[in-house]
Nucleic acid binder design. Structure first.
Lengths: 183, 183
DNA sequence: GTGTGCATGTAAGGAGTTACATGATTGC
DNA sequence: GCAATCATGTAACTCCTTACATGCACAC
C-alpha cells in the first residue's frame, strides 16, 4: 500500500487520541482544516486500507446498539509515521485562492470597486485570523498543557501569518482610499 | 457555459496581453502560480469553450509554417470578467501543505529531528519568499510601470507574507535549539 | 417527542495533473 | 547540427467533494 498525506493525517490523528473515523474528521475540522482539509468519504476508506496494511488495528467498540469501530496505531504504523516525518521529499505547498486571483486582475475595475475588493479580502483574512486565534489556538493549547506542543505551534503560525496578511491588506486599503480622495 | 476561476484566469491573462494558450500558461508560471497554478491541458480546452461562448475571439496567426491561434477578449468577455471581479460569492481559500502537516505531528519525533524539520520548513519558506522577491515581483513591476498595478501588489503581498512566515519559523528554530542545549 | 450530534459507509461526479503525441523555430 | 523554446492538443488517471443512504443516542 502506497501511503499518501491523507494516510498520515489519519495515522497522526489516531495517535493524538481520536478513536473513530468520525472523531478523526471532527478533529481535522478543528485543527488541520486550514492546511490539510479532509472528508468522511476519505477517512473511512483510508482507515480500511490502513487496517489491511496492519498499520492500524480495529476493535468493535459499540455505543449501546450503535456499532462503532475503535482504531489504534500499531507499532508498524508508528514507524511509518516517523519515517514520513523524517523524509525530505515533499510536494510543494499548494495554495489556491480565488480572492487573490481577483485581486491580481483588479486593474480591470474602476477605482471604487477595486477598493471594495481589497476591503473584502482584508475582512476575510481578519476573519480567518480571528477564527484561528479564538477557536483553533485555544483547543491546541489544551494539548500543549498535556505535553503535545506542535499543534499549538502550527495554530499560532497560522493565526499570526493570517493576521500579518490582514494588516498588510488593511494598509493597502488605507493607501488606496487616500489616493482616491487626493484626486 | 458555466465560468469557473480557470476561465477567468484565461480571460484575465488574455486581457493582460498574452495571445496564445502557450503564452497564457507561461504567464501564470511567472505570476499566479503561487495562488492559482494551471496547466496546458486546462488552458487549451478552456480557450475552446470560451471561444464557443463568444467571450474570446480567435484568429489564425501562424509563425512561419507553424500554426498559431491568436486570441482576444470580446466585449462580452470583458463584461464577464468585471462581473466576476465584483461578485461577493467566493469559495474559501484552499491551502494544502504537506510540510505544515508534518510539523503538526512533529511531537512523534525525537527533539533533534523536530528541529531539523523546522529548519527545512524555514528554508523552504525563505526560498519561496526569495523566488517571489527576485523573480515574480520585478516582472510584475514592469507591468506596474505601464499602469497595471495589481499584479505587483499581489506579488509583494505574497513575498512579504512568505518572508514573515520564514522569519517566524526562524525564531521558532532558534528557540527550540536553545531549549535543546539548555537541558 | 424532536432536533442535534454520533456513527459508518457508498456512488457519482468534478477538477486538475501527468503522460502521450507531434512538430516547427530560433539561437548557439 | 542540436538544444531549448514555441506551439497545440488528447487520454488516462488521481484526488477529492458532494450527495445519497441509514439509523441510534442523548439532551431539552
Amino acid at each position: 500500500m502506497k501511503l499518501r498525506p491523507p494516510s498520515y493525517l489519519v495515522l497522526g490523528m489516531l495517535r493524538l487520541g481520536a478513536r473513530s473515523g468520525y472523531a478523526i474528521k471532527k478533529a481535522t475540522d478543528l485543527s488541520t482544516r486550514f492546511f490539510w482539509p479532509t472528508s468522511l468519504a476519505q477517512v473511512y476508506p483510508e482507515l480500511a486500507k490502513l487496517e489491511q496494511a496492519e498499520l492500524v488495528s480495529r476493535e468493535d467498540d459499540p455505543r449501546g446498539a450503535r456499532a462503532r469501530s475503535s482504531y489504534e496505531v500499531t507499532e508498524e504504523g508508528e514507524e511509518a509515521l516517523r519515517a514520513w516525518l523524517r523524509s525530505e521529499r515533499e510536494a510543494p505547498a499548494q495554495f489556491r485562492d480565488e480572492g487573490v486571483l481577483r485581486l491580481f486582475f483588479a486593474d480591470a475595475l474602476p477605482p471604487e470597486d477595486r477598493i471594495a475588493l481589497v476591503r473584502r479580502l482584508g475582512a476575510r483574512a481578519r476573519d480567518t485570523a480571528g477564527q484561528m486565534r479564538d477557536e483553533i489556538v485555544p483547543l491546541a493549547e489544551e494539548f500543549e498543557r498535556g505535553g503535545v506542543r506542535y499543534p499549538a505551534i502550527v495554530a499560532r503560525l497560522g493565526a499570526d501569518t493570517y493576521a500579518y496578511a490582514a494588516e498588510w491588506l488593511g494598509r493597502l486599503e488605507a493607501q488606496l482610499a487616500e489616493e482616491d480622495t487626493a484626486e
